[in-house]
Design a protein around this nucleic acid. Sequence first.
RNA 1: GCCCAUGUGGCGCAGAGGUAGCGCACCCCCUUGGUAAGGGGGAGGCCACGAGUUCGAAUCUCGUCAUGGGCACCA
Length: 654
Amino acid sequence: MTSTSIASLFTALSWQPVSKAEFAQLTPDEQLKRIRHSSAHVLASAVQMIRPGVQFATGPATPTGFFYDMHFSAEHDDAQPLGEADLALLENTMRAIANRAAAFEVAQIEKSKAIELFQALNQPHKIEILERIEAPVITLYRHTLPPSADNQNDPGNRYFVDLCAGPHVPHTGLCKFAKPLTLSGAHWRGEEKPTLTRVAGTAWANDKDLNQYLKFLEASKNRDHRTLGPQLDLFSFHPWAMAPLWHPNGFILRQQLANFWREMTEAGGYVEIFNPLLYRKALYETSGHWDHFRENMFIFEGRQENDHAGCDHEQADQTIALKPMNCPDTMLYFKSSLRSYRDLPMRVAEGQILHRNEASGAIHGLMRTRSFIQDDAHLFLAPEHVQSEVASLLAMIDTTYRAFDLEYSLKLSTRPENYMGELAVWNQAEAGLKQALDNLGKPYDLDPGEGAFYGPKIDVYVLDSLGRQWQCGTVQLDFQLPERFELKYADADGSLKQPIVVHRAVFGSFERFIGILIEHVGGLFPTWLAPVQAAVLPIGEAQSGYAQAVMKALKDSKIRAVLMADGTLNARIRQAETQKIPHLLVLGAREAEQETVTARKSRQGGNQQVFTLAEFMEHINELVSRRVFDVTLERFDDLFRKPAAHLSTEDADY
RNA sequence: GCCCAUGUGGCGCAGAGGUAGCGCACCCCCUUGGUAAGGGGGAGGCCACGAGUUCGAAUCUCGUCAUGGGCACCA
């Protein structure tokens, strides 16, 4: 189709400008959402100017900006793939488009005409979208592009036109505070091919918010656990190691969290078991994981030497696999003897190392690793236990996240499409979870279809100081495993009944939680968690004897301390601050004389306080035993919560 | 796994078709210093790995591995 026919399609439509008056009435949040969506259009139009042959997929607003997915083709000169080096050019082009303050116009068009139009414009993805829309009439949005040598006579190029439900801002000038940031791949409708290029960026209502967001990005980069971890000597990565290597400092962190977990589970009436990592395939066939998740398991094929399988020697399948979760072998523990209703609720914890062969692209620092430990436990319950057990789990979750000053939200996920088992059983399980949540009184979200294949679940999302959400804790009901493992207990009347299993974790995986925590606190751990809690800094050699005595006293009191005696005092203080050690003890002639320490609470502008040594140790032990969160966080979460400044079109007009 | 990038001493970075440089850290010497870097000297890298092009490759090409930003995945 020629540009003339595009022109005739265009002129046949009634284009209406987006109402300025209506926009001015919107709440700041609604305005900002429109700015972001419109910025996606501005971005796309900028790409169209640079690569006229590009094909567009979709371009929505995101919580901080926008993206647009598009298809480039190395075979066409006018659709060459963009590289990261092109982002600057894109940004300038977007600014040029914004500076024109070109009106956004909307028109209604019959679906069949729209298909014709996008055929003429060579936009196959748009046609695909159109074909899925049922409405007979759809809307188009367009805005003009800055003039260039060759686009004035060709409406297909003079305008950027998009299939879009809207709504949009009145003109491109409102998208002035948008900035393209990243270039990445994306899949069209979840299919593997063809792969699209996603240009993503951020957009705000004004200069100040944009700059604050860019500052936030910088701060997140500085807090990245993959940078801080090695810097604080917590862990490191090596190409030959399939998972992070935990250094002594990192191991202390892990142990502290594990202790916290054990204290809570012991208090909650749990027992802890210790099972092997390797199991025969039959275990996973029984649990159902073999069918569903074999792809992600580390499997060892074939017959093992000197192996005496307990069953049929000739036929036994010797394929074994590293366990990717604790549940199946916990079922074996339950089955190891005949259980009575008097044993329930039975709460069984297991924190063994798990291995999952994650896709290479899924691996991410500590957040997704191929080997990790969960603060896992399984509950075996009679139906009447469900509500109270889930309620006490929700209480445990609350205690835990409070200890880290982490806000959280709850989400109930219900039956997915690939569910196992019977519908009636599912409904019963979901009703139990709902009841416990309703009794809690805390608001929660519902996420239909996102449950595990074996049961519905409550997921816990924490909100860190950078305003990001992470899934950590989980409470999952399971009616499938008891069925598959034929779990039974003898009820009061002597009849055999099937228990309900609950899978639960509070931290999720320790690896992931530590990653979140590092970024949440920016490496400034509360005293109870800090790998090194105190640095001892004798001013001169004359104090070395006293420093030794202080070190010994601290050690006897189980306080983790290091002696820093070499170099100038200033340099040592800087070093200790850089290592984010919470307490610095400066020891000079005065302190040695009076058996005191001058403690500098680090990371808080160098406040000093003189303690007797005994007082100081008592102070630290108090912080530790009560697990006090003695950290002042630099927060950025407000950036994502506060309503954007109100914006009328007049303010942004120029 | 997919798309696009990246890979230079422990860490952070420069450089570049003729066989490597800076800062921090490290080691030694001097300095014993009251709250965020005292001074001097030294050691350390076949520029991720493999192949190709070239008289010559760390630099160009291809492949592999790893990492990063996303996508897909996440029992």
